[in-house]
Write a protein that binds this DNA or RNA. Structure first.
Lengths: 338, 338
DNA sequence: CTTGGCACTCCGGGCTGGTGAGTGCCAGCC
DNA sequence: GGCTGGCACTCACCAGCCCGGAGTGCCAAG
């Protein structure tokens, strides 16, 4: 079957090009990979592959490089995700198990992912929308000043200061805390928000209830809508090698635009599936020469956030996919335990 | 006085080189600046300036560029900090006044500074060491689980979860809170830390006091020693123009090493003084072609943190210094009000 | 001390020719 | 029908070369 051989040639081209970063020619190909045919045969195959739009030559009579379509086929059909070595697994486990709180988990994940893949890593903070209210605390710091603490099942703690128009008795604070706790405890953030909006309307103790409810709604919506991300491994941008202006610059600018990054990460994929967005497949044409490898994470198959890396289309897909998947799994496990 | 003219020539060279980024020759100099002498005269002056090590030529028979020493003299004696325009002042005020909490102030400052200077901005989070303990709260989330909340005068709120070996009565929690509050309230973080270390020793209620004290010490030391910084405007690295490998890469790598950034910012300068560290004057020789413009900020002349920008030695010092100073002042004012 | 003149240096761009990697095609072979 | 060796062809890349231009240093005169 010369059809199979052609795919083998495509795979060899992708692997070589990723490794050397140079167009790969027919002769080098047969030497490096053990396909038992002559260069001339490979040339014919290459012509066919080019016909199908899977590879291309940067200029006449140079070697071939894969097109986005070529990478796509490679990722979909020609590769299996490399398993992580035991040593790598241990390293991941040790680093992530040392985290002290949720933010620390996110920050460690970003660093880890950047190190493992030698690329720019992006980790989305877990969304609150699916987490539930575990506890609410009101603390009177001063007669007319309240500290509102909101603890969610995801482990996130939000706190806000509220200045009151009128001073408030300790019993009043306790009563309000009791009321809020009764209404909100165990509810999801979405449910809690609607419940609070009702409370806001109700006339209460001199407007205190209203302002506290507003604050809580604000605290909940804040980190749900303007979802935050952590970025790491910007130094790996240097790996783009050529085309500073073309590829590195737009990325550098995007790194501080968290909205753009979130869009790059894309929709959450649950169930351990890793999404690969190659070059122009993405939402921005500025990133025509970058690929995004991402996946969702979260306890028990329920995605509460995404993480992934972005790098040149010419990247080591099997290895990168493996790292992304492995880190997502460990993060999920940690969230499960917490 | 030809001595004065020589300094004028130096100033002109610095200004032209900063603007054009190209070595500046004698002819262009007399044309662009109105020094009423001939190119030949300027050449003599240039030779003298070169003799003193203030300027140099990249290669024989090219224009001159300032040396680090030349920039130093320029900054020290030849320039006054450009005042900000009213429009700029208003912009700064509007942006910073919109901040909702301490972290937001820091993040907005970084963005602002990066925008104003078109360079990489660094803002250190306020240190805790000078702030005092305003309030301590213990909340029993579960029989054997405590939430510890620590509120500091700087406005920072730290919270930790503590798992207890044995369950604890509500009265015990209240008593412990009272004891801690009595010992710590109003103390500086440093004082509080030593006080807590004594408490740790004392045998208490089944080790609860010990573990809570440890947690508090940890929370206080955490953000004091590993002081955090915010970074912004990484995209402005592109402004380095040439010498990607030489200048941009080390910086790109340093941007995630917060320790390095802190060292770059240097010692806090209070009293509105702006520090300029030019090229090799800094602590790292990798950054021989970058300068750091920084200053301290904090309420009432008491520096609680630094902020600044880092950019190529060839930068607009007067403008940059003005921006850094202006932002530091506004941030200080906000901290004063809070 | 300043100025105009002059010879000198050297970077940078454009042109040229040689080299090598790689291709496409064709005719022969299994 | 598919594979192979051979061969002519095409470019990118590099080194060498030349040349113009910007800029300098020096000198002698004002």
């Amino acid at each position: 079957m010369q059809d199979e051989r052609r795919l083998a040639v495509l795979r060899a081209i992708v692997e070589d090009y990723v490794a050397t970063q140079e167009p790969v020619g027919s002769k080098a190909l047969v030497e490096r990979h053990g396909l038992g045919v002559s260069p001339a045969t490979v040339r014919n195959d290459m012509a066919a592959l080019e016909e199908e739009g899977l590879i291309t030559q940067p200029h006449t009579s140079a070697g071939r490089i894969p097109t986005d379509k070529g990478y796509r086929l490679f990722v979909d059909r020609l590769t299996t995700i490399k398993p992580m070595t035991p040593a790598e697994r241990r390293a991941i486990a040790t680093i992530l198990d040392g985290a002290v709180d949720l933010d620390d988990v996110v920050q460690r994940s970003v660093r880890l992912l950047a190190q493992l893949t030698h690329q720019v890593a992006i980790v989305q903070y877990p969304t609150l929308s699916r987490s539930t209210v575990r506890h609410i605390e009101l603390v009177a710091l001063a007669p007319a000043r309240l500290l509102v603490v909101l603890i969610l099942s995801s482990g996130r703690v939000e706190q806000r200061l509220v200045d009151l128009a009128v001073p408030m008795e300790d019993e009043g604070v306790a009563a309000l805390r009791g009321r809020l706790s009764a209404v909100l405890s165990g509810r999801t953030v979405a449910e809690a928000t609607t419940a609070l909006e009702l409370l806001e309307e109700a006339p209460g103790d001199g407007g205190v209830q209203t302002v506290v409810a507003e604050t809580l709604v604000d605290a909940m919506s804040d980190h749900r809508s303007s979802e935050r991300v952590a970025v790491g491994g910007a130094a790996n941008l240097a790996r783009f090698g050529d085309s500073f202006e073309l590829a590195v610059r737009p990325l550098l600018e995007a790194l501080e635009e968290h909205v753009v990054l979130l869009k790059l990460l894309g929709e959450a994929q649950s169930g351990g599936l890793v999404t690969v967005r190659i070059g122009h497949e993405g939402p921005y044409q500025e990133f025509a020469s970058t690929s995004v490898v991402s996946t969702g994470y979260g306890p028990a198959d329920e995605a509460v956030g995404n993480l992934g890396v972005v790098g040149p289309t010419r990247m080591d897909y099997p290895g990168t996919m493996a790292s992304v998947r492995a880190v997502a799994r460990y993060v999920s496990r940690i969230l499960d335990e917490a």
